[in-house]
Amino acid sequence: MTEHLSNAQIAWRAAQDIEDGAYVNLGIGFPELVAKFQAPGREAVYHTENGLLGFGAAPPAGEEDWDLINAGKKAVTQKPGASFFHHADSFAMVRGGHLDVAILGAYQVAQNGDLANWRVGSRSVPAVGGAMDLVHGAKRVAVVTQHVTKDGQPKLVERCSFPLTGVGCITRIYSSLAVVDILDGRFVLREKLPTITMEELQALTGAPLHTDGAVADLDVPAL
């Protein structure tokens, strides 16, 4: 059986690419883990669609203030300098191009950068929410995801078969097997787990993987 990174390890790898001082929005669920793994010496400023800039880690169990939540309705804490504002102003930040990075989950990502992350058949999150704004408002949009579905189907595909969240919006994918960039309508492999061969990785990917120079080992800590 092919070894896969855990969600925490994928989130750790994504966090290493966030620049110091970046304004960042994290999607609901799995992407929220990214906030736990800031690189040493760097500090990102996290933004939520419901009107909070500069939130910190989740509080200890039993110490939650349920007036202080993120867009996923999870309790958070404030960092020094945190600010609150109407959600309309929060979306103005997104739509005005003031976010450096958005990191979202995915059901499918196409080789041209299309993203489907809110509906699979009759199953969906409650609504697409702010994702459609984020994928076209943030300066850089990345995905964290398992490389395949629970039944082994590729999540990196030639063309999305699920309803789209955004068109041509994703530039990098952090998966459980690899780090893949999207360039000129192609998947370009940057890093892969050293325990998987190129042939094995390609068999689990629904579109051709290209290389542009050396492919580095995907090296993450045990978390």
Results as ranks from 00 to 15, higher is better:
47 H>D: 13
47 H>N: 14
51 G>V: 07
52 L>D: 01
53 L>V: 14
55 F>G: 07
56 G>K: 13
56 G>N: 14
57 A>S: 14
57 A>L: 13
59 P>F: 03
60 P>I: 02
61 A>P: 12
61 A>M: 12
63 E>L: 12
64 E>L: 10
65 D>T: 05
65 D>P: 04
66 W>N: 08
66 W>Y: 12
66 W>A: 04
73 K>D: 15
74 K>W: 11
75 A>G: 13
77 T>A: 11
77 T>L: 10
79 K>M: 15
79 K>V: 14
80 P>H: 09
80 P>S: 10
84 F>L: 12
85 F>M: 14
86 H>K: 11
91 F>Q: 11
91 F>H: 12
94 V>R: 00
96 G>K: 02
97 G>E: 00
97 G>A: 03
98 H>G: 02
98 H>K: 13
100 D>W: 02
101 V>R: 02
103 I>G: 09
106 A>D: 11
108 Q>M: 06
109 V>K: 01
110 A>N: 03
112 N>E: 01
117 N>D: 05
118 W>D: 01
124 S>E: 10
125 V>L: 11
127 A>P: 06
128 V>T: 07
130 G>L: 00
130 G>P: 12
130 G>C: 07
134 L>E: 14
138 A>W: 02
139 K>N: 10
139 K>F: 04
142 A>N: 10
142 A>S: 15
148 V>M: 08
149 T>N: 09
152 G>A: 09
